[in-house]
């Protein structure tokens, strides 16, 4: 395990997280969240947590995103903050 890579991924995740909560378009935020989850998946896989990574990929990046999109499609896409 290379901690620099690890660290970079983590930093990137933080960026994603911040972006996800700052972007005004909720759909964009959702997609960024999916990206966040994917990075998380990578990170976990790299940490030898393959099962968890698998699940996160399916759930965090998959189902959750779908749920968000479904919800947004039924409500409003823009956000005031």
């Amino acid at each position: 395990m290379i901690w620099e890579l690890d660290f970079a991924l983590l930093l990137f995740m933080i960026c994603c997280a911040i972006a996800a909560i700052t972007v005004r378009d909720l759909l964009h935020a959702t997609i960024i969240l999916a990206a966040y989850s994917l990075i998380m998946t990578v990170l976990w896989a790299e940490m030898n947590a393959v099962d968890v990574a698998f699940t996160e990929a399916a759930v965090g990046a998959g189902i959750t995103t779908v749920l968000f999109i479904a919800a947004i499609s039924r409500t409003r896409r823009s956000s005031s903050d």
Binding site: V50, D51, A53, F54, T55, A58, V59, G62, I63, V66
Partner: peptide, 25 residues
């Protein structure tokens, strides 16, 4: 496959189920 493979490798019921659901999605 994922469901069935759960015993011997990464994967399992949950992941498989989600994958299956993804198909429907």
């Amino acid at each position: 496959y994922v469901i069935a493979h759960g015993a011997s490798g990464p994967g399992g019921g949950f992941q498989g189920g989600v994958a299956f659901a993804a198909a429907f999605i």
